[in-house]
Design a protein around this nucleic acid. Structure first.
Lengths: 217, 217
DNA sequence: CCTACTTAGTGTAGAATCAACACTATGAAG
DNA sequence: CTTCATAGTGTTGATTCTACACTAAGTAGG
């Protein structure tokens, strides 16, 4: 299965090798300390760095992490955990109408068949990430058209989270963030009362987190 | 700088190559959909999979992700974000007394000098992770001795979070999780009233998240 | 044995936040 | 002008969070 690793970009061009870095924390009195080693070689010879090294062929990442940590610092038998379980780190979000892919097909998350590798687990994980991310970042709006209705946002959230949300509570909370700009035009679809359209104001979002503001449903 | 990538373990032994996988989400009506492609080659030929491919030498991960997505699905100009910013995915936690490393040295998080690569940013990120993780997982106890006092836990949390916590609120909340087992013995250090010792019960933690229980200070 | 010292350990009240809930307003279509 | 379907709006009770101060107990020293 794919694993999280890192490649040192400062390596010679020929063949990329994989490196694992390990951040070691310890508490000492009132301080949180981290273990650094001095690099004996270029690049950055002499600079302090997080312990890390290259994965050998046929070696698991877990094994490599343990081996390298031992080799570089002499530490062994410590609690070691992979910070992220999976290594395929890209998520893409597209706005509707979803483009028709030249190859591949769109599959509802609810009806996945058997997948290659451990891709099923990766997808599950990515969905989890997306859910968590909804709470503290504006990723949701990247899945919506530039102009959207409040109902549209709520639908998106409900779809992603997989549960219904209270309309009034949702609107109150969303609007209280003051990141949406009401547009002049309103949506006209169906023979019903059209809803107001909004636009997401990227810049207004900045600093919300610092102010302790979150967006949890 | 190191980047998040994944290695397909099913590759021939000789030289490991790097792959990037991209999960593409889109909303369609009431469904969250994901883009899958059929693998044309072994391993898992014919199986559906997340679009992904190998990074070329001298190619950045961002560039590789975009290139591969385009090549495999024809999608371009979508919002692409690296799920995790850094690729060094291991964090180790050691209990006091912190072992003396054969090489390297312990550095307080507060007084880091210049570091190799982008390790400063990685450390900052790891600390963030550790803080977040405190809230929903029992990692904190991995930094403490097997037997600890409530004050000890609070000190650890205060150190990691970098801010003082209310003693009574902290104890109430921690004990309400019912994951600590009081021990018979109590701590004897200093000429003062010794505090009760507790042990963390790993198994009691399981399922706390499901029950919607979190541990935020 | 008594006193002093220092940390352990405990409860409450007011504020803020969350969750549940139902009706009126408005535009389109016929 | 009536019908229909969705848009849009406040309040209340429950829960959770935060701020805050005193008594209890063990050790050490006289």
């Amino acid at each position: 299965m794919p694993r999280s690793v890192s490649a040192r970009p400062t390596l010679p061009d020929q063949d990329v090798r994989l490196s694992v870095d390990t951040i070691v924390f310890a508490l000492e009195g009132e301080q949180l300390r981290v273990l650094l080693v001095k690099r004996p070689v270029e690049p950055f010879a002499g600079r302090e760095a997080i312990p890390g090294g290259f994965v050998e062929s046929n070696e698991s990442l877990d094994a490599a992490a343990a081996r390298i940590l031992d080799a570089e610092t002499g530490l062994r038998d410590v609690y070691l955990e992979q910070l992220y379980t999976f290594g395929a780190p890209y998520i893409a979000l597209v706005r509707p109408p979803a483009p028709t892919p030249r190859d591949g097909r769109w599959v509802p998350m609810g009806s996945l068949g058997p997948l290659a590798f451990d891709h099923a687990r990766i997808l599950e994980f990515a969905l989890q990430r997306l859910r968590y991310k909804l709470e503290y970042s504006p990723v949701g709006f990247r899945l919506l058209p530039q102009a959207f209705t409040l109902r549209g946002v709520q639908n998106a959230y409900e779809t992603i989270l997989g549960r219904p949300l209270d309309k009034r509570n949702f609107r109150r909370k969303l609007l209280s963030l003051k990141v949406l700009k009401p547009l002049a035009r309103s949506a006209r679809e169906g023979p019903h009362r059209p809803a107001r359209l909004y636009r997401f104001e990227e810049d207004k979002w900045e600093g919300l987190r610092e102010k302790g503001n979150v967006f949890v449903f």
